[in-house]
Structures are given as structure tokens and as C-alpha cells.
Nucleic acid binder design. Structure first.
Lengths: 115, 115
DNA sequence: CAAACAATTCTACAATCATCTAAATAAAGC
DNA sequence: GCTTTATTTAGATGATTGTAGAATTGTTTG
């Protein structure tokens, strides 16, 4: 999983409503936009927007069947995200870095400015 | 891990810069605010803000030593988050729900309004 | 074809948030 | 006590984003 996808997933999981939607799809086999929006006090347009974000992060995929679009969870993508997350953080630290014990570390009289 | 904490963690991990900061702390044993802000083109105040978010999510903790504050990763919290995430999503679905095959599912002539 | 239904796109708005500068708080050393 | 350094807080701003309503596209079925 590349860095861009990694951040898309993190972002997609960050909004409470969107995560609820994600959970709801996961609890069922597959669901269409309308039945999802029945579960929440938000408009169908909002649900559609969240579904797009989730699909963009590849956390869900869609199967078209006539006028319906059935969404389902891509569990392997969530698993890949989780594995990368744990690997990036829980990997053994190169211990003993603990800096700033006499290092002037640059003058920095004024604070930064770039964005 | 309760729901509020769960969402705080998800949110804390969602911002790219904040995640980089988190990764940087994880790569070292512990780091103080100043040496972290040396690694990124943002002001120390911004770093302090991100550290507060991470600490609020309990993803990091601080150890005070004189005028310095050393931050370190709470790996067990990240692990708890990951486990809950996987459990909430990857738990076996109660298969066969697939609704909307003739259900009128409420009239909903107008779209929703509550937030 | 026309009407009804499903989903998305467009546009707009309010809220959130990442970021900055400046000021305040706190500790160390002279 | 004063100065220097480390960090946090306060206030402001620009960007992002969650949301709704309207318009649009696409599909099914009288």
C-alpha cells in the first residue's frame, strides 16, 4: 500500500458518520445507497459522498445491478492498512536517539513560515 | 477502548503531518517538542498543537524533565485501537441481509434535515 | 414514451481544523 | 532577580470538509 492510499484510508476512517456507514456495510453482506441512508439521519446525497470517499480509499467496492449499486467491504484493504500502520509505528525504534541534551539545534529566532 | 477514544485515535491518525510526527516519535525512544519541530517545516506552536491531539488520543505520553518534556509512543494504545478496528469491521457479517428488493422502506419524499 | 425510483453531481454554506504570530508560562543558569 | 531557552496558550486566518437541496443521469416498469 503506497503512502497516498494509506492516508486516504486514515482519513476515510476518521469521520464518525462515515465510519458508522462503513460499519453498517460490514455488518451486512452488501448494501445499496438507499438502504444505508435509511439507517442515518443524513441525506442520500451525503451518504453518496461518504461512499465515494470510502470507495476512493478502496475500503469498499461497488457491484452494479440494474438501478441499484451494491456496496461491500474490502476486508483485505483494511487488513493491509492495519498491518502497515502497526509496522510503521510498532517496529522497533532505533533506540538511544534522545537528542537535545546540549545541542543548540539551529538558531531559529523566528518561527517557521512555509506551509 | 470506548467509542469516544476510538474516534479520537482515528482522527489523530488522519492528518498527514500529525502522523509523520507520530512516526518520528515512534522511530526514536522519546523526543521533546523542539527536536520534533526541527524535523518539520512548521512552527513549534503547530507541533505543540499536534502533540496535544496525540496525547489527548493517548497515542503518546509525556515525561517532564526540567524545562523539557519528552514524548514517547504508547504502543499498547495503538494496538488496542487496531484490534478494535479489525474486530468492528472484520467480524463475520450476519450474512444475508441484502435488503431493498421490494421494500418500500419509508416514503421519504423530502430529504433529511437534521445534523 | 412517461412516470417513478436510484444514485450521483453541482452548488452553497457552516463548522472544523491546520497553521501562523504573538504573548504567556515555566524552568535553568548567570 | 534577570536573561535565555522550552513549551503552551490565545487569537486570527485560510483551507478543508460534512452536509443539504436541486438538478442530472440512468434504470425499471407501466
Amino acid at each position: 500500500m503506497n503512502g497516498a492510499q494509506f492516508h486516504k484510508v486514515a482519513k476515510a476512517l476518521a469521520d464518525p458518520r462515515r465510519f458508522e456507514i462503513f460499519e453498517t456495510i460490514a455488518a451486512s453482506d452488501e448494501m445499496c445507497c438507499g438502504s444505508i441512508s435509511d439507517c442515518f439521519p443524513v441525506s442520500q446525497a451525503t451518504v453518496s459522498h461518504h461512499l465515494k470517499e470510502l470507495a476512493d480509499a478502496e475500503l469498499i467496492e461497488a457491484r452494479c445491478e440494474g438501478q441499484f449499486k451494491y456496496f461491500s467491504v474490502r476486508r483485505e484493504v483494511l487488513t493491509a492498512y492495519v498491518e502497515e500502520l502497526v509496522q510503521r509505528i510498532n517496529a522497533k525504534p532505533r533506540a538511544g536517539v534522545k537528542p537535545r541534551r546540549g545541542s543548540k539545534a539551529g538558531v531559529r529566532t523566528t518561527t517557521h513560515s512555509r506551509r
